[in-house]
Computed example of a mutant assay.
Amino acid sequence: MFTPSTRNSNPPANRLKHVLLLACFLCTLSWLALCVLNGGIQMRPFLPPGPKSVIQMNNSSFAISTLDMGISDEEWERLQKALDWPGPDQQITQLDLSTSPVHSTFSIVELKKSYKVGDNISVIITARDHNKNLKTYGGDFFKAKLFNSKLKASVYGEVVDHRNGTYSVLLLLPWEGQAQVFVRLEHSSEVVQILKKYRESSFPRSHYNGHFEGPGSKNTQISEVVECNLKWGPKGSLRKGKCCCEYKDIKTGIEWQCERPKKLSCDKLIGHSMGRFESPLNQFENHLFSG
């Protein structure tokens, strides 16, 4: 716990405002320079954009390009790098080798007695397993924040993964008064890999009920409820053959499958509702989530 002083000769907001004004001024000068070149605006012939690289999405039967997404190839590469998440360097089969929230620690770098508004607080997180051994790889999902219970204020910092079991955080102090550092392990790197595996798989987590209604014999009305689900990827998530009815959303192109009703035809589908939830986790993976 620490208390920032009230000295703040040049608030960050004012400095940012000056920088933005200067940037706008420079942009205006550059535009004027182009306009006065040779006495007027220089017209350039339109050149159509070159072909964009095609991106094959996981578990999908179609491909899209960066042009379709409205981004450049460089931006796509930056996004891929930002989404890259390190994982264990070996298969983890023992629970005690996963990251422990009890034995992992953090410390404030060069802790001072007082800080002023706008100062940065540097924090180092060290991950350990359940045997208190230092982790040698990254991938843990930590959250770190400054908070003040009295003011009901908090601010999160960006956690940088050094991929060797250590993490650094830079927290900006935005208020006067007391502040405390709070670090929480949301998911271990081992759990993150499980989430990633099932995110990229075609395992159907949620199932839906398809409601069918149609006329029966002797002026009766027949109602049937069967299980339905989305088709994931080119192979689909349900069985093939005459067992199922298939439907396609005209607007989105998403395909559905419903088990074929025993008495009614496929065109008697009137709607659907939420059904059961199926967990893909095995026994060991369940232990990792609860540990």
Rank of each mutant, 00 (worst) to 15 (best):
P4C: 04
S5A: 13
S5W: 08
P11M: 01
A13T: 10
K17N: 15
T28P: 05
S30W: 08
W31T: 10
W31N: 13
L37V: 14
G40C: 02
M43Q: 14
F46S: 15
F46W: 13
L47P: 08
P51E: 12
P51G: 12
K52S: 13
S53L: 15
S61V: 10
A63V: 13
L67M: 08
D68R: 03
G70R: 00
D73S: 05
E75K: 09
W76C: 05
R78L: 10
R78F: 07
Q80M: 12
W85K: 05
P88Y: 00
Q91W: 09
Q94M: 12
D96M: 13
L97D: 09
S100K: 03
S104C: 02
T105F: 01
S107V: 13
E110G: 06
Y115W: 04
V117T: 06
G118S: 02
G118I: 00
N120A: 11
I124S: 06
I125H: 00
T126V: 08
T126N: 10
H130C: 08
N131F: 07
N133I: 07
T136W: 11
T136P: 09
T136N: 15
F141K: 15
K143D: 12
K143W: 15
K145W: 07
L146K: 01
N148D: 08
S149Q: 11
A153C: 07
S154D: 11
V155N: 07
G165Q: 02
Y167A: 01
S168A: 06
L172F: 14
L173F: 03
W175F: 05
A179F: 01
V181R: 03
V181S: 05
F182Y: 12
R184S: 13
E186A: 11
S188F: 00
S188C: 04
R199D: 13
K218F: 12
K218M: 09
K218V: 11
Q221V: 15
S223K: 11
V225I: 15
E227I: 13
E227K: 11
N229R: 06
N229E: 09
N229L: 08
L230Q: 06
G233I: 00
G241K: 02
C245W: 00
E246P: 03
Y247R: 03
K251H: 08
T252A: 01
I254T: 12
W256V: 05
Q257C: 06
C258N: 02
K262P: 05
K262A: 09
K263I: 12
K263H: 08
L264Q: 01
D267H: 07
G271C: 06
G271D: 04
G271L: 04
S273F: 04
S273G: 07
F277P: 04
E278G: 06
S279L: 02
P280I: 06
P280A: 02
L281D: 02
N282E: 05
N286E: 12
N286F: 10
H287Q: 14
L288D: 04
F289P: 04
F289M: 09
